[in-house]
Amino acid sequence: MQEAKILIIDDDPDISEAMTVVLESKNYQVSIARNSREGMDRIQDDKPDLIILDVMMDTPQEGFTMGRQLQENPETKDIPVLMVTAVKEKTGLDFKAEAGDDTWLPVDDFIDKPVKPQVLLEKVAKLLSKSK
């Protein structure tokens, strides 16, 4: 079986490359986009099996906007999205106000930066197995 294709959308090259190393250790095929526009192009060229999405890029909520776009688009709504953020849910951005209700998030799961290699691998494996 071909290993899963993962697209990282994050404007921080150090973090995205560190995540690449972690993911490549499990033989995932990783590609990187620096912002949501580049990410969208990449998705159209070659649909990934999973997207890792940063919240704050050029604008503080770029990740949210993109997450919602992905969810609304029938072509991409099946791709699991793992959101990465340096801002903790409980104390940081108001996810609730953003979402309009308690549970709604435009992504499937999220983790805090810095991402622990083990945690990242576990979450990725879980999301991929769910979407199969």
């Binding site: 150090d14 560190a18 995540m19 340096a86 930066k113 810095p114 991402v115 290699p117």
Partner: peptide
Amino acid sequence: AAIKSCLD
């Protein structure tokens, strides 16, 4: 966060 990611 970047430093830690690299160190990890």
